[in-house]
Design a protein around this nucleic acid. Structure first.
Length: 499
RNA sequence: GGCCCCAUGGUCAAGCGGUCUAAGACACCGCCCUUUCACGGCGGUAACCCGGGUUCGAAUCCCGGUGGGGUCACCA
């Protein structure tokens, strides 16, 4: 592809990373970045590492860190090096690497690539406003650049704690050869001296990433497009430190229905929320992979194993993608349908417990029965959570008619005869199997002279209150003789009352 | 507002100058399967943002416009 560099640098080992800041749960976008990095590493026999960027002391938490890591693992994304697992480039949490940043900041200071700045927030705000008013890019104009030691001493005397700013050359143009976007260039005149060390001695993002990516020998930085405009700053830092920058690949953003960056107001954005609703990791992974990347053929159903054989950056799209819940639901339903019943039942149990349908110790008999119930609604589910709504017909004590159509059907002339006949036949039967149910239904049809729909519909409605649902003979078998008889009786009584 | 990115059906997307009267998937509609619905099968509706170039030839290349998005923190 013209203008786009070789994906894998000749001779270089692929080393990529996912570097979340533990300020919240793992989001859809973050998960996709992690996935793309993981796939890229696996595809090219490289190393995938996870590093925690917790320099925002206010918002970072261990809770978030653990939840992000757990969600990654749940998705099937593991790492060869990094937090929890260790490695030669550790520690992998930025707050444990402060010495390193201070050392390199000191170096930049000594070589006059950086300087101390004592400007107050008020000064800065005023400057930003006037710049904005003039229609210019708000940036730091460099007031403290030429501060001498006397000036510094005076300001220190006032109790001011300085930040360290990087001196941005005003006359440069930084060119980035992005692996997905091609050539992108930025004029430094619009950047302004940015902060690399905060006044509390903690590095800022732009500085910490550079130091870490370099010291961890990262070869490719694959991240969301929102970081594209940070890249020139980082490139400048690499140059000043005398380091070779990695290759960059900025993947497009994931948008909400209204085409703006996905956020909480677009509904569920955290992986954990999908996990809780009963989405399967294989469906999420498959879906995420297709968001921005496309395979060569026409097939779209892929496992992680398959994806890692076929992933490549040159099939990553440049345009942003709208998160399509319909498609996720379809994919998830697809994966649910091919799940072994045992597995689906296991997944369904917590939901059924929460719904109050079953109680914790599930006996073997009860479990087998559950399997039947779950299996009868398997094809209806687009996520496991929905099992509750579908399986409700097996648990209610009182059947209530749902919808207008149900009432109309039950008002038909043949209904009493059909229900009575079926109930009578039941009393003779011992165990009501699906097979037997089918027989009985057939006989009822014959004896009442009502065929097909005329017998199936009333029975279905008498048993479930609904006009739609799993195969009737299955429903009967799952309910069992007693309940079927009881519900038939109840329906007949209800009918009498109406008359 | 400055800077940067993006632009094929409602959505995800293939397409890398001729094979495009433009693939596939989701959604939608219809038919079939089924004595229900769903699943499944088959079929259908539906797109190259606009204007200029370049070229024998442009969805594909260039420029401009328009639209959308991102970013401008002692957040990452």
């Amino acid at each position: 592809m013209p203008g786009i560099k070789q994906e894998t640098p000749a001779g270089g080992t692929v080393r990529v990373r996912f570097a979340p800041s533990p300020t919240g749960p793992l989001h859809i976008g973050g998960a996709r970045s992690a996935l793309f990095n993981w796939l890229f590493a696996r595809r090219y026999g490289g190393v995938f590492l996870v590093r925690i960027e917790d320099t925002d002391l206010e918002r970072s938490s261990k809770v978030s860190e653990h939840s992000i890591l757990d969600d990654l693992l749940w998705l099937g994304i593991d790492w060869d090096e990094g937090i929890r697992v260790g490695g030669a480039c550790g520690p992998y949490r930025q707050t444990e690497r402060l010495e390193l940043y201070r050392k390199h900041a000191g170096e930049l200071l000594a070589r006059r690539y950086a300087y101390y700045c004592y400007c107050s927030e008020e000064d800065l705000a005023a400057e930003r406003e006037s710049l904005l008013a003039r229609g210019e890019m708000p940036r730091y104009l460099g007031r403290c650049r030429s501060l001498d030691s006397a000036g510094r001493a005076r300001l220190e005397g006032e109790g001011r704690r300085p930040v360290v700013r990087f001196k941005v050359p005003s006359d440069r143009i930084v060119n980035i050869n992005d692996l997905v976007r091609g050539e992108v260039s930025f004029e430094c005149s619009g950047i302004g001296d940015f902060i690399i060390m905060k006044s509390d001695g903690i590095p800022t993002y732009n500085f910490a990433v550079v130091v870490d990516d370099h010291t961890m020998s990262i070869s490719h930085v694959i991240r969301a497009e929102e970081h594209l405009s940070n890249t020139p700053r980082q490139v400048l830092l690499y140059e000043a430190l005398g380091w070779l920058a990695p290759d960059f690949a900025h993947i497009s953003l994931i948008l909400g229905r209204d085409r703006s960056k996905m956020s909480k107001r677009h509904g569920a954005t955290a992986i954990g929320q999908y996990r809780e609703k009963g989405y399967l990791p294989e469906a999420l992974v498959n879906f995420l992979a297709l968001l921005g990347w496309s395979p060569e053929g026409e097939e779209e159903i892929f496992s992680l194993e398959q994806l890692k054989e076929m992933f490549s950056l040159d099939r990553v799209a440049k345009s942003p993608a709208v998160f399509d819940l319909d498609k996720l639901n379809w994919l998830n339903g697809h994966y649910i349908r091919r799940l072994p019943v045992e597995r689906l039942t296991e997944l369904a149990i917590p939901f059924l417990e929460r719904a109050g349908y079953i109680k914790p110790p599930v006996s073997p008999e009860r479990y087998n029965w559950l399997k039947l119930a779950v299996s009868s609604v398997q094809e209806y589910l687009s996520c496991v959570e929905e099992v509750v709504a579908h399986v409700g017909i097996y648990f209610t004590d009182e059947v209530t008619l749902e919808g207008e159509e149900a009432g109309i059907v039950m008002a038909q002339d043949q209904v009493p005869a059909v229900l009575t006949t079926l109930r009578d036949k039941l009393s003779g039967a011992c165990e009501l199997t699906a097979r037997l149910a089918r027989e009985l239904l057939k006989e009822v049809g014959k004896e009442t002279g009502a065929g097909g729909k005329k017998v199936f519909m009333p029975v279905r409605i008498a048993l479930t209150g609904r006009t739609h649902g799993p195969e009737l003979n299955q429903v009967m078998a799952i309910l069992g003789r007693e309940k079927v008889a009881a519900r038939l009786t109840a329906a007949l009584e209800r009918d009498n009352k109406d008359l």
